[in-house]
Each structure stands twice: as structure tokens, then as C-alpha cells.
Design a protein around this nucleic acid. Structure first.
Lengths: 155, 155
DNA sequence: TTGTTTGCAAACCTTTTGCACGTTA
DNA sequence: TAACGTGCAAAAGGTTTGCAAACAA
């Protein structure tokens, strides 16, 4: 288990994503490329609104929300991005590592901060359970709710 | 671990819920009571729409969606109900067992069916992990995605 | 009586869709 | 040039809120 995504892994993801987009017969439009480039820099999940805000703040492009959503849909269909639902009614998106390595999320009830969580024992227990089910599991999400260290101290 | 909720446990939950509502200084209105009575009969989660449809179909009351949502909010605040987000943008709600016993969910990508999942080893791994985090975990959700037995056979 | 609960309608917010225009291969 | 991608505006779907009337304690 690795808790850090390196610079080269990020660049690798962007390259992989653009190759997959091209291989799918899709073209290189500005909005989708901007979304890919922004996601490549992320370790954890962002909302569509956060993605758009970041792109609008950066010089160059001013994609519409629709284009951001369409890009995220396409990337999700290509398994390049994971859509994450942490409660509330806002979806979040994060790059999907090609090697299947992934993490889960802890959401603070105090400040709303989202933290990435990784645990091999948990993954192992999950896979063992999945093997016993009459259900073909191809993905799983785990979300922890509670209070982060800072909000716990402040209570 | 118990995979079945007995009739007496359901009645117990309804009684507990009404006592908690009363203890919180709230009154006994018809819409909220109808929601409590319906949830008491459930083992797994329902959407607000499903709850309202069931209440409208039953004789007696015809609560508005707003009242259903308000009742669910109140019950969630009192920790009598768990709000469950399984992806998509529809929230689901299920009665929270007083003893903390709970289950997780598997969502079929084919038919959308939701199945309850229980596993002690998984819970144990989760708690061990939680103990090591600088994060005070007070709840967790696990969602499996994939294909149910029927949809797997049909593929 | 007093404050809570309810139903309706309108408002909100996120996400999706229709459409005309611009762009890529 | 033909198909795909983009931006804008409108639509859609779920959830929340404002408000006046009904109701419980």
C-alpha cells in the first residue's frame, strides 16, 4: 500500500487517460483535456463545481458546467475516473489508478474535510467477504463519518 | 450477527422511536407517525419517494413529500434513522437498530436491486483500522457495486 | 392558548439535455 | 467535410423552504 501519489504517477495517469480517449475514437477537445489535466494533479476527489471553479480561475479556458459533466461522464465510462458519493447530494470525482490501487474516504462532520484512507487488512476482509457472496462485486466504496483531529480538539 | 429482523424487534424500534420523539419535546403528528410506522416494517432502505408512495397507497393519510422529508430529517437527527447514499443522487433511509447492529449494501448495476450485507470480519477490520486513525469515527458506510446472481446469469 | 406539524407551492441545487456553433481528424 | 466537442440556456429530478391553516399538549 502506498499513501503517496508521486509526480510521475500523476503524469502517467494523464498520459494513460489521453491514450485511452484517443483509442476510444474520441477527439482532443479543450474542455475535456483541461479536466484531465486538472484531475491528474489530484490525489483525492473533487466535485464538478470545484473542478469548474479551478479551471475558470486558471488562465486559458472557461468551460461550461455541461462540458465538465460530459468530460467526467466520458472519463468514468472509460474507467479513468471514479465517481464517489460521500453523502449529501454532490458527486465527487477522482482519477482511477491504472493498477487498481485505491483508497477510501473519511468525511468530517465538523468541517466537511475529506481525507483519503488506505488499509490492506480492510481490503482483504472485503475481498474475502465478496468471494462468499452470490453477487459479482466489481467495485466497492467505504466512507467513514466522524470528526477529524482538529474538530475533535475544538469540541 | 443476525441476518433477520424479527417482528418484535420491529415493534420495539417503533416504540423506541416514538418514545425518543416524545422525549425530545416533539408532538405526535400524523405524517411523522405514518413514516415511523412504515419504516418499522422495513429491513432495508427506502427512498423518500418510495416511502411517500407507500403511505399514499395505504388508506388513511396522504402526506406531502415535504412532510416525509421533514420526518426523515427529524428521525435522522435523533439517530433513529440512517441516511444511506448508494450512488446516484437519491438518498435512502432505513431504521437504525438501537443495539448498533447494522448492515451494508450491494447495488446491482443490472437491475438496481439493493441487497443487505453483513460480515463480522469486515466490521472487525474496520474498527481496528478506525482505532489507528487520527479521526474519531462514529459511523461508516460500505457499498458494493456489481451484478446480482440473476443479472450475472443473464449476461 | 401556544408552539408544533402539515400540505401546498415555490425556490434551490446539482445534473442532464437540446441546439447551434466551433473544432478536430 | 463529416463527426465530435463545446457553451449557453432550458429542463429535469431530488430536496428544502416559506407560509398559512390544522392540530397536539
Amino acid at each position: 500500500m502506498r499513501s503517496v501519489t508521486t509526480q510521475s504517477e500523476r503524469a502517467e495517469w494523464a498520459r494513460h487517460a489521453e491514450a485511452a480517449i484517443s483509442a476510444a475514437g474520441l477527439r482532443a477537445g479543450g474542455a475535456r483535456k483541461a479536466v484531465v489535466d486538472l484531475l491528474a494533479q489530484q490525489d483525492c476527489c473533487l466535485t464538478a463545481q470545484e473542478i469548474r471553479d479551478a479551471l475558470v480561475a486558471a488562465p486559458g479556458s472557461t468551460p461550461g458546467m455541461a462540458s465538465v459533466y460530459r468530460a467526467l461522464d466520458t472519463l468514468t465510462d472509460l474507467h479513468l475516473v471514479h465517481r464517489v458519493d460521500l453523502g449529501g447530494q454532490v458527486a465527487r470525482y477522482e482519477p482511477a489508478r491504472a493498477d487498481g490501487d485505491h483508497h477510501h474516504h473519511a468525511v468530517c462532520r465538523g468541517c466537511g474535510a475529506v481525507t483519503a484512507i488506505e488499509d490492506d487488512a480492510l481490503e482483504s476482509a472485503l475481498h474475502q467477504m465478496a468471494d462468499r457472496l452470490a453477487f459479482e462485486v466489481d467495485a466497492h466504496d467505504i466512507t467513514l463519518h466522524g470528526y477529524c483531529a482538529r474538530c475533535t480538539a475544538r469540541k
